[in-house]
């Protein structure tokens, strides 16, 4: 039984107890994964960069220059990932996101595509991820703290004479996309010079928990997971609903997801899309795939639609 559980917590069998405690902890705490590759593996020159988040947490990243280009894409990673991607070919990360989501995700391949298409790339590790600093007792709290890392990154770009005048686009996946939405919602003026977003795999935490519990035959325990999550992070899962922040996102935004992704529900992404404040927006589903990983690898396999989006707006 969890030590912090309130007196009215339900009595659960050991297996159920372990499953829901693991889910609440898994969402409530950030988890680190190693940065196993660098852009140099694809022949890309890059610069190791370090700068403070807006609250001072040290962030680590890469700047990959594209000679002669005045366009910059900022890449933001997913939950538990880092700027390189995710080592899901190696345990314990191989087992972290369920069957099928167990091959390596290598975002440096994406950076190669962007670079070769004429974009500078800046990729960083969120706090408590990759090689960036510890903060907030490692708690996630529905991306509340990570929004400061986005603001810090934009401040860093504006502080560098060689980057400050570049046309800026953001490519943010999953948690990165949610963080971007929440950051725009809380500090819209900080995004005045961001021309567009590509924000696949938006995911509301309560929908994720509902889908995951249902898949495990534990659907009736959603409120108990939510209660434990709140005891860990001070906030309920619903505080992370992407749909609530979407109306503030007014820059052109493209999103996509895997329709049959077992850890979410299609309505979550579609609702967020429908609620977008942007008048120029687009979304598509990856069909005939059942694993979320297909969306992380989509750009490096089928870059054209996303490059078209950036080419249209990053000017």
């Amino acid at each position: 039984m969890a030590e912090h559980a309130a007196p009215d917590a339900p009595v659960l069998d050991a297996a159920t107890e372990a499953a829901i405690e693991s889910l609440a902890n898994g969402l409530g705490y950030a988890s680190r994964s190693p940065v196993l590759r660098t852009p140099a593996e694809h022949g890309l020159a890059y610069e190791e960069i370090s700068y403070p988040s807006s609250d001072g947490v040290p962030l680590e990243g890469w700047f990959i220059p594209a000679e002669g280009s005045t366009k910059l894409i900022v890449s933001m990673h997913a939950f538990g990932f880092n700027r390189y991607g995710f080592p899901s070919h190696v345990e314990p990360w191989k087992s972290a996101f369920g069957p099928g989501n167990d091959t390596e995700i290598d975002f440096t391949l994406d950076y190669k595509v962007l670079h070769d298409h004429g974009y500078n790339v800046l990729a960083f590790d969120f706090r408590n991820c990759g090689l960036s600093g510890d903060a907030n007792g490692n708690r996630m709290s529905n991306n509340h703290f990570e929004t400061r890392d986005v603001i810090g990154t934009l401040d860093y770009i504006r502080s560098r004479p060689d980057l400050s005048s570049m046309a800026l686009g953001i490519f943010a996946r999953c948690m990165g996309a949610s963080v971007a939405f929440r950051a725009v919602h809380s500090r819209p003026q900080a995004f005045d010079d961001v021309t567009c977003l590509v924000a696949p795999l938006l995911l509301s935490p309560r929908v994720f928990v509902e889908a995951t519990l249902k898949g495990a035959g534990l659907g009736e325990h959603i409120d108990e997971v939510d209660r434990r999550f709140q005891l860990l992070t001070s906030r309920p899962l619903a505080d992370g609903n992407v749909e609530e922040w979407a109306p503030s996102v007014t820059m052109p935004t493209l999103t996509y997801g895997v329709y049959d992704d077992a850890i979410t529900r299609p309505y979550d992404l579609e609702n967020a899309y429908a609620a977008l404040g942007a008048t120029e927006k687009d979304m598509f589903w990856i069909e005939d795939e059942t694993v979320r990983w297909a969306a992380y690898q989509y750009f490096q396999r089928h870059p054209q639609r996303i490059l078209d989006w950036f080419d249209t707006y990053v000017k």
Binding site: E270, Y273, M283, W285
Partner: peptide, 8 residues
Amino acid sequence: ATGTTPTQ
């Protein structure tokens, strides 16, 4: 029923 989502 339709092979697509309500939004689409």
